[in-house]
Structure formats: C-alpha cells, structure tokens
C-alpha cells in the first residue's frame, strides 16, 4: 500500500507538462487544421472564411497529387531498400555471432550512426557523389568513364541513397531486436528436421522476425514522407517531395492555408500508415514481448 497523494500534489507533478503540451503542441496543430480550411488573399494574408478549397486543389491539381504519389513511392522504395540492407547485418549479429560482448559491440556500431547529426550524414554523400567526388574519381581512374558524370549528385538517385543511408539504423534497430528474440532452439529444430539454411531463413526467421521488420520499415516510410532536407541538399531540380511543397507554401509561395492543408494530408496519411502497420505487427507477432 502507498500513501495517497493529495490531488494538489498530483497536479503539481503533472500540470506543467499538460499545460505545456496544450499550449505549444495541441493548439498549434488545431490552429493549422483551422488554417487549412481558410484561404489566402493575393498578398498571402489568411482570410478567415471557411472553405474546402485547399483540399479540393490538392486532389485535383496535378502538382499536388502527383507529388504526393511520387513521395509515397519513393518512401516505399527507401523503406524496402533499408530492410534489404539491414537484414544481412541483423541476421549475422543475431544468429552467427556467438559471444555476447561481440554482439553488444556490433549492435552499438549499428546504433551509433543513429545519433550522428542528420546534416553531417547527408553531407557525406555530397563528397562521395559530387562532380569531383570519390565515385567519379574512382570511375575515372578505373577508366570506366572518361568524363565525370554530373548526374549522380543532384538527382532522385542521390536523394534516395542519402535517405536509405540515414534511415538504415531506424530499420535495423527494431529488426535486430525482433531477430534476437527468436528462440535459437526453433532454428535448430528446423535444421534437425532437414530444412536447409535458405528454407530456415525464409520459413522460420523471416516470418518470426516480421513484426520487427514491419516496425522498422514503417519508421523509414514515415520519416521519408516527412523529409524535406534530403531533396534540397542532394536532389535535382525535379526532385520534389510533398514536404518541399509545404515548405515552399510557407516560404516563397506564401499560401499558408494551402500549405496547412498539404501538411494535414501528410499527417492523415502518416497516421493511416502507422495504424495499418500496428495492425500487421500485432497480427504477425508470435511472441508476446515481455
């Protein structure tokens, strides 16, 4: 039994955070939702007059819905690439490394880039992919090309590589956690019953690791949908993600209601993705995490 806290004590502990979150988080969200239903005049001022104009524009004007679709496709591509890249490493650490201390060391190596500045990691690809960068320099020395390729940097390709690079730890961490939870006895049982390595991998390890894989892929998907920096830093003139449209609408184009509406559409999509992903994670989870 515990001593009862008075309501005043409870309020003292809890209220500052509740007030903070209402004032600086909920109200701003409510505000842009309201703003998304207004319109802006020729000078970019918000006119208080309720209309669904912005939403209609998003779903009828090609610039908006096509960019939205393209961003979704890019996000899926990034998520799948991150999964493919993380899988061998996570599998290796979970099943092939025996000593606990080496496991911890390798896991730390995966987690570390997670904490390294986004801008620093994005920047590294500028050195590698640049016109006089390492990739071009390497290709020139090997004689595979005779002139530096200009199209590598500032393209959709560069943007995707950069995002895959940045988001791989986000995918690898939950994936490794899921693979590590798979009882080794199950894998041995499969082998004893005559399953080859590939069969074991695809019929035991992948299905049992699926919740972690889904959760990691969701991170990559959602974070790409909200990213506006990689396209600016590494993308070409035509690399435009939906978040860049939001950024422009709040900047040079100065149409805040439309910008808010695009933002709300992104939010709605992300909430949908998260819900679907949680559903599948639950559906495929065989072990209740303790």
């Amino acid at each position: 039994m515990t001593t009862a806290y008075s309501n005043r004590a409870k309020a003292f502990l809890l209220l500052p955070m509740v007030v903070w979150l209402i004032a600086f988080l909920l109200l701003p969200y409510v505000f842009i939702f309201a703003q998304s239903l207004m319109k802006s005049d020729a000078f970019g001022n918000v006119v208080v007059e309720f209309t669904a104009e912005s939403y209609i524009k998003i779903f009828t004007s090609k610039l908006y819905y096509a960019t939205l679709l393209k961003t979704l496709m890019m996000s899926c591509l990034v998520a799948v690439s991150c999964v493919i890249i993380s899988l061998p490493l996570c599998y290796f650490i979970a099943f092939k490394v025996q000593s606990e201390s080496r496991k911890t060391m390798l896991y730390t190596l995966i987690v570390l880039p997670f904490w390294v500045s986004y801008i620093v990691r994005a920047y590294s690809w500028k050195i590698i992919l640049g016109q006089f960068g390492i990739l071009n320099g390497f290709l020139l020395t090997t004689g595979l090309i005779t002139e530096p390729l200009e199209i590598i940097l500032y393209s959709d390709f560069a943007t995707i590589i950069c995002l895959v690079y940045i988001l791989t730890p986000f995918v690898a961490i939950p994936m490794y956690t899921a693979l590590e939870q798979i009882p080794k006895s199950l894998v041995e049982a499969a082998k004893d019953l005559g399953a080859g390595s590939l069969t074991t991998f695809f019929r035991i390890i992948i299905p049992l690791g699926l919740p972690g894989i889904i959760s990691g892929a969701t991170f990559a998907l959602v974070l790409t949908m909200g990213d506006f920096l990689a396209p600016i830093l590494l993308g070409g003139p035509n690399t435009l993600f939906i978040s860049n449209i939001v950024q422009n609408l709040f900047g040079t184009s100065n149409d805040k209601p439309l910008g808010s509406a695009v933002g709300i559409v992104i939010l709605a999509l992300i909430v949908l993705v998260l819900e679907v992903s949680t559903y599948f994670e639950k559906k495929y989870s065989s072990f209740k995490s303790s």
Binding site: F31, Q247, F250, G263
Partner: peptide, 9 residues
C-alpha cells in the same frame, strides 16, 4: 509525426 508539420504548425 513529421517534424515539418510540427514546424509549420
């Protein structure tokens, strides 16, 4: 939720 939406909000 994405930082950009929190940012513009």
């Amino acid at each position: 939720l994405p930082g950009i939406v929190t940012g513009v909000a």
